[in-house]
Design a protein around this nucleic acid. Structure first.
Lengths: 159, 159
DNA sequence: CGGTTTTAGTTGAAACGTCAAGTTAGCGGT
DNA sequence: ACCGCTAACTTGACGTTTCAACTAAAACCG
C-alpha cells in the first residue's frame, strides 16, 4: 500500500471546522425543535417534506429518498407520527405495494406552528453570520460536495 | 407573534444543500470506517483525539468536549473500547473524580491503520471537489458559523 | 473546619436507529 | 397463465444514544 496523501494545513483547518459544524448544527436544530415543538429534527423534516407536496401526500419510498433515510427507519417514524395523529397511511390506488402518507389537519397545523421558530434558528446560526457573497460560495461548495455524495440528486427533490 | 423572516431563494438553496451535506457526509464516513476498520465514526474520532495527546492520554470531560458528546455517551463508548482492549481507564492522580483514558498499543496501532483510509475518504468527498480558493472560503464560512455554534471553542482543542 | 454546591463520572431504563428476515404486490419473459 | 425476480414496505431483535438518578470527590464559603 502506498503513502497516503495527507491533508495540507489549510485543508486540515477547513476539515476540522466543517467537522465541527456537522457535529454541532444537527444538535442545535434538534434542541430547538424538541423544546419548542416537541419534534425531533427528523420528524419535523418528514412532516415538512410531505407538507410541500400536492394533497399533502407522498409515497414512503420517495419520502425515504428525500429524507435520506432507510425505509425501515421511515416506517418506524411514520408509525409514531400516525399514532400521534399527525398523519395517516393509506394504500396507493395505483400500486398495491406502496403506502402513501398524508398529513392530517393536526399535522398541517403542526408544521405551520413549528416552521417559523425553525427558520429563525437556521437564520440565527447560519445566515446572520454570513454575507450574501458567502451564502453563494457556500451554496457552490456544497453543490460540489453533493456531486460526490448524492450524484443522483436523491435528496434535492427531482429524483 | 410577529411575521417570521423567511429565507430568500438563494438562502433557501444554500440551506437545502448544506442540509444535504450534513445528512450525507456523516453516513459516508461511517460506512468507510465500519467497512475498513470495524469502528464507528465516533469511536474512531475518540481514539484519534486521544492519540494526538501527550502520553496518548486524555481526561474524559475534556474528551467529551472535543468530541461533542455527553459524558454519559462517552462513558458507554469508553467501556466498549476498553473491553476491546483499545484503551484503558485510570483514576487521575491530581483529581480523584477524573478518569483518564490512555490508548493501549493495540489502540495506537488501530489509529495508525485506520487513518489513511479515512483521510482518503475525506479527500475524495471534500477536497478533490474543491479549489484551493474554495477550501479557504469553506474554512471562513464554517468559522463564522462556529462563532455561534461553539463560542468557547470547545471542539477545536484550545478549550 | 463543616456544610453546601459544583464537578466528574457511572449506571440502568427507555427511546431510537439499524439490520436481517418476512410479506405482499407488480413486472418480465415464455 | 405461470414462474421467478424485484420493489415496497413491515416487523422484531439488537445495539447505541439519551435521559434521569445516583455516587463520590473537589471547591467554595462563612
Amino acid at each position: 500500500m502506498t503513502e497516503p496523501r495527507w491533508l495540507t494545513d489549510d485543508e486540515r483547518e477547513a476539515w476540522l471546522r466543517l467537522m465541527a459544524v456537522t457535529m454541532l448544527l444537527p444538535n442545535r436544530l434538534e434542541q430547538q425543535l424538541k423544546r419548542d415543538a416537541g419534534l425531533s429534527h427528523f420528524e419535523y423534516y418528514v412532516l415538512a417534506m410531505i407538507s410541500e407536496c400536492a394533497d399533502r401526500s407522498l409515497a414512503l419510498t420517495e419520502l425515504a429518498s428525500r429524507t435520506n433515510s432507510s425505509l425501515s427507519r421511515l416506517s418506524h417514524v411514520i408509525a409514531r407520527l400516525e399514532a400521534q395523529g399527525l398523519l395517516t397511511r393509506a394504500a396507493s390506488p395505483r400500486d398495491g405495494r406502496a403506502s402513501i402518507a398524508t398529513l392530517t389537519d393536526a399535522g398541517w397545523a403542526k408544521v405551520l406552528a413549528s416552521a417559523p421558530g425553525h427558520v429563525e434558528e437556521v437564520r440565527s446560526v447560519v445566515f446572520d453570520a454570513l454575507s450574501a457573497r458567502q451564502v453563494s460560495q457556500l451554496s457552490d461548495i456544497c453543490g460540489r460536495m453533493l456531486a460526490t455524495l448524492d450524484p443522483h440528486h436523491r435528496l434535492l427533490g427531482l429524483g
